[in-house]
Write a protein that binds this DNA or RNA. Structure first.
Lengths: 308, 308
DNA sequence: TTGTATGCGTTATCAA
DNA sequence: TTGATAACGCATACAA
């Protein structure tokens, strides 16, 4: 391009006050440079971290994300999905709440990557954590450390795939490692209850059952267990062992005391984006695959002191 | 519309496999039903809560949000802004990092609402917290409770408007309430340093200066102060008072011990969205306004016990 | 009620 | 290199 021409063009641009219109461009090119992201909510640190990871990856490649929360409602999830399809986003990453997407017509031109949960209907790539074996490992850790002991299991509804797998692993591990048929206690809670309520239920259960160890299947229960223990004046890790899944506090104030299986939202996001972009750029692997990430088990210090 | 016709239309729709195209519609209508949201990052709980609030409000009115993180980089902020303008979003809410938007041409057709910080250049609506008076109130609380005492102030760079106002208020309050010229210590840290590093600096400062009270201007410093105190074996609220701005943990495990000025991300988001929609629907107030939200001061219990 | 034409702002194509 | 024209898919306006 000659300098003369360039000058004339730039002049014309400023003269006519020309502003490129991305909508017209998208219409013409059939490309929006937008990725749709559907997550259950934004309360959970995990969701936020996944989102952050995805934002970082996509923004590197010049994409932006349209963010939709389904508020744990399958109907809103479907609405969001349809909205994104209508807006012709270039790809969709979703952490499904509903288990069934058979009714939604998702054009093959829009690749979809699922997070954590499978759905009935279309066959999509799935990026998820390893839950069962991780639970087994956590329980194994407990028996290694405490020898024979009384466990209090706090878990959510097994209507939830993730909870189900974690519980399944834990049960299997008990079968394996509990030599003398110790008593175990099970407490099923709703993980989306208020933290005060969760705390109270756990508090009551500790009072009643007097367990040596609490195993919590998610960060909300983990937090509740910590709060309940503090409320009872129990020293964590000395008087009672607490372990389970998830990140409990962003500042790592309490984490050093407990052994947790830490989710890897960064990796989840990275892989999801990479897989999605491969599909967008038609570098298929033909068949959708499942990518499984191992949570990182971080062992708490055993003397019951905070060492920050 | 007659039933016959309706039937024929629906038939045609399914026959031709008609899928409405939102891009073409947006081009024609000059309306995208998308709000652009620019935030510094997604690390901070505050950002996430603002975002959640905005998502909830906008989704009620059928809008979705395109989310951009500027990663605390004014250049990326400008890029994001231009991208959103090019994509003709219907409105923009931004928490500015840069102080100057004079170079960016923002068409008057796209209303903008700022969060927390003013910028040079265009005159936009601003929704922000009250920082100065809140700091004054927090300091007043300390003197009321402890009488005369030695304060350790942990604050960020006053290049940051928010930090500046909080520090200013605190200083003013000291002038007002410190009767006998007690010694105060000031520690300036970078609020985006690693939490371990922040903790270490505060730890050293406590060792050296032996303060009765720590005042932290933001949640990161607050968390660092708590960690440092724990590391030193100090009992929070008994041996050392900790107070300051922000939410430190999502599960409220430590909060009961300390008096904090809690930000109101929900309100910030709500007001921002309401103001924005008024502009979008041309129900102007002619001149941009400033909306100021008071943080909620939550007083910790004074006996140094966790009561959850 | 039905059909036909036009424009939104790009980009791609073809001709000059 | 330049200019003219069509098409993306929808909405609107006007004519039949």
């Amino acid at each position: 391009v000659s300098d003369q021409i360039r000058e004339r063009v730039l002049l014309a641009i400023s003269l006519l006050n020309y502003k490129p219109n991305g909508i017209a461009r998208s219409l013409k090119n059939a490309k929006t440079n937008i990725i749709g992201l559907i997550l259950p909510d934004m309360e959970e640190i995990y969701s936020m971290q996944v989102m952050k990871s995805i934002e970082r990856m996509t923004s590197l490649k010049g994409y932006k994300i349209i963010f939709c929360s389904n508020h744990h409602d399958p109907k809103r999830e479907v609405t969001a999905l349809q909205w994104l399809i209508e807006k012709r986003v270039d790809g969709i990453i979703m952490f499904p709440t509903g288990r069934n997407l058979e009714d939604v017509e998702i054009p093959s031109s829009i690749p979809v990557v699922l997070l954590e949960r499978k759905v009935k209907g279309p066959n999509f790539d799935l990026v998820r954590h390893e839950h069962k074996n991780t639970a087994i490992q956590l329980v194994q850790n407990i028996y290694k450390k405490k020898g024979q002991c009384h466990l209090l299991f706090i878990h959510g509804s097994s209507a939830n795939q993730i909870e189900e797998e974690r519980l399944e692993g834990a049960l299997q591990a008990i079968d394996l490692y509990d030599q003398v048929n110790n008593k175990q206690y099970f407490l099923e809670l709703n993980s989306r209850s208020e933290i005060d309520q969760i705390t109270e239920m756990i508090y009551q259960s500790i009072l009643k059952n007097n367990p040596d160890v609490i195993f919590a299947t998610n960060p909300n229960f983990l937090a509740g267990a910590i709060r309940a223990a503090l409320k009872l004046g129990l020293r964590i890790s000395e008087d009672i062992e607490i372990t389970g899944f998830g990140e409990i506090d962003p500042f790592d104030i309490f984490r050093p005391l407990i052994t947790v299986a830490k989710e890897q939202p960064d990796e989840i996001g990275q892989i999801a984006v990479n897989v999605l972009f491969k599909k967008i750029n038609k570098q298929f692997q033909a068949t959708p695959q499942e990518y499984i990430i191992k949570p990182k088990i971080i062992v708490g210090n055993s003397n019951g002191k905070l060492v920050l």
